[in-house]
Design a protein around this nucleic acid. Structure first.
Lengths: 206, 206
DNA sequence: GTCTATAATTAGATAGAC
DNA sequence: GTCTATCTAATTATAGAC
């Protein structure tokens, strides 16, 4: 009586399997970088055999792109969801709250930053794809929301504002071992996240 | 008549070989991370055979520490050298100039940031060693120089100030492919470096 | 001090059974 | 859809020649 798939979703179980693989891939790629992440370890984490990965994804490169889709998709949902609550406050306070929201989202998804740093120094196809598919839309959304007002309306300062904001907001959550060993503060603690959100918001919108 | 070593420095040539290996290792570890960097590729870049690496360094871990010593040593020299020129200006302007110097040094050595990010999320022996040996002394020097005045004298804000400064100053130089593809600005250009130094200095010391 | 050879392990990709 | 088996190549570490 087991394994009777419905007519409408014969592949529901396969979708779940595929999803588990992608989730395991996100962790592996973020923790170890593209080359060092092993498809065997990803399969093991997802509870499947390595051969199945080539059924759902052609090769390691395709799996990486699926992982990137999930990382940026989750991020987009998180930010957009929190931004729908329209704020009737001053532009400065609105920008500050956007930045605090941004910091909290980064804290919840440190894998995002490592994805970018691991890939961002390679002038290759994957970087072109990542920027065109995911990073540019995010950049334009942040700009339209007024989060980059720190550039003072000078378009030439936008790149510096973007990477300064991203680096200031996110680095601490991507190197928790360094931060904890160095300062005793664990950046995964909720209080540390709020403290960093307040600090960065005050820094960028004084 | 070749290969007549002097009495005092019989190993001068060996030292040069060792140094070439370390230099190649710095590049490899920064570009690809600890696991993905291969000792064979490092040996090839240094113009030696792989077996020689275990003569000069016990294993990959020891080689990584030697590479870290070189990265942080170079950085320390660069910063200290530039700071000896005492500045008789206001504390604010002095802090700004220190931060500009810091940004320029980071731009000249993007491998520093990738060393930290690649290692900083692992709670292991290497992180403990890196923090205790290199990061903490650098942190204390920055604090004593007044570069973390953005914390406003509040000791609890120091961790946030440190990682915000480091991230804001350095990220852009560590992801040049992202920045160039996204904005058209190549952060390796001297004008871009100066623009970022000015931007970050103005951001942290308004 | 440097190289050659190789052992033991692991990598990604593929073919085919079920 | 999932797994088993295997191929080729690359990995770190080691032993020993010179």
């Amino acid at each position: 009586m087991a394994k009777i798939p419905t007519k409408r979703r014969p592949a529901a179980h396969a979708d779940a399997t595929r999803s588990r693989i992608v989730t395991a891939a996100v962790t592996a790629f973020a923790n170890r970088g593209f080359e060092a992440a092993s498809t065997r370890e990803i399969a093991r984490q997802a509870g499947v055999e390595q051969g199945l990965l080539t059924y759902h994804f052609r090769n390691k490169d395709s799996l990486w792109r699926a992982a990137a889709d999930q990382v940026f998709g989750t991020l987009r949902e998180g930010v957009v969801e929190r931004l729908t609550a329209a704020m009737e406050v001053s532009p400065d306070e609105r920008a500050r709250e956007l930045i605090r929201t941004y910091v909290r989202t980064m804290a919840a998804h440190p894998e995002f930053f490592r994805f970018i740093v691991d890939q961002g120094h390679r002038f290759d196809e994957r970087t072109d794809w990542l920027v065109d598919t995911h990073i540019r839309p995010a950049f334009e959304m942040m700009n339209q929301l007024g989060m980059l007002r720190v550039a003072g309306g000078d378009e030439r300062k936008l790149p510096h504002a973007l990477f300064a904001l991203l680096g200031a907001s996110t680095l601490i959550f991507s190197v928790p071992a360094n931060c904890y060993r160095l300062t005793g503060v664990d950046p995964r603690d909720p209080e540390a996240i709020e403290a960093h959100a307040d600090f960065v918001a005050a820094l960028l919108i004084p």
